[in-house]
């Protein structure tokens, strides 16, 4: 099954010559008949990752880090424990490391081998994060990649690229934008975008009209 052949001919009992929808349907049905999986439980998992687990969790972590210096310190010392304080934990949430953007350092996260990503704080990764183009270029040309997201990092700022793995996941803590001193923690969280926590964006100061400015 792990062979490299592209064109297949003949009928060799190989399920992979069918479309993915037919294959997963058959697999689910087979496992369900054997009592190994249960359709309702699968529905619940999908519901959880489509609607409950997502970047709003990470945004809460970032807003807390901006407003509570003691929390910020704990976050950089032990991100797993700090997130648990906010009730955020779950699969793929172990080994989380928070990396800090500063005026001198910008952080960018990738998983070059597959799709490792901190689910509890960011949800499941976007399609581009898993794409060959992003995985193959984020390390060799991070500035070029960020430019394609509309983000220009000045030469004076050091760019650090973090390659995720089974052992280590990353969340970028972006810089707090100017003119946000008057905002509440909740309003601050609303400014934080998913892309800024991966490092392909920074956070724009709030516009007068809408606190949720997320043009990129």
């Amino acid at each position: 099954m792990s062979d490299d052949t592209i064109g297949k001919e003949g009928h060799d009992h190989d399920a992979t010559e069918h479309g993915p929808a037919a294959r997963i349907k058959a697999l689910e049905q087979l496992l369900s008949e054997k009592g190994i999986v249960d359709a309702a439980a699968l529905d619940k998992i999908i519901e959880r990752y489509e609607h409950l687990v997502g970047p709003r969790n990470g945004a809460r972590v970032v807003a807390r880090a901006w407003t509570d210096p003691a929390f910020r310190k704990r976050l950089f010392a032990d991100a797993v424990a700090a997130c648990a304080e906010l009730g955020i934990s779950g699969p793929e949430g172990g080994h989380l490391v928070a990396v800090e953007n500063t005026p001198r350092v910008h952080n960018l996260v990738v998983c070059t081998l597959c799709s490792c990503y901190p689910w509890p704080v960011l949800g499941l990764p976007p399609a581009w994060y898993k794409s060959f183009a992003y995985r193959s270029r984020a390390v060799s040309d991070p500035r070029g990649v960020m430019r394609e997201f509309g983000l220009e990092i000045p030469e004076s700022v050091e760019v650090r690229v973090w390659d995720s793995s089974a052992e280590q996941r990353y969340i970028v803590i972006p810089e707090r934008p100017p003119n946000t001193e008057h905002l509440s923690e909740e309003e601050l969280a609303a400014l934080v975008t998913r892309d800024s926590m991966i490092g392909v964006a920074t956070i724009a100061p709030p516009s007068k009209k809408s606190p949720r400015s997320r043009e990129r």
């Binding site: 060959f132 998913r194 990129r216």
Partner: peptide
């Protein structure tokens, strides 16, 4: 776009669908 291999859905980042087809969701859940 060039980077995305044509797979980006063009939605605002936080509003992109997690799965682009139901079978993807089933595979993930299994």
């Amino acid at each position: 776009d060039a980077l995305l291999d044509g797979i980006n859905l063009g939605a605002a980042p936080d509003e992109e669908r997690v799965f682009s087809a139901p079978w993807e969701a089933r595979a993930f859940a299994v």
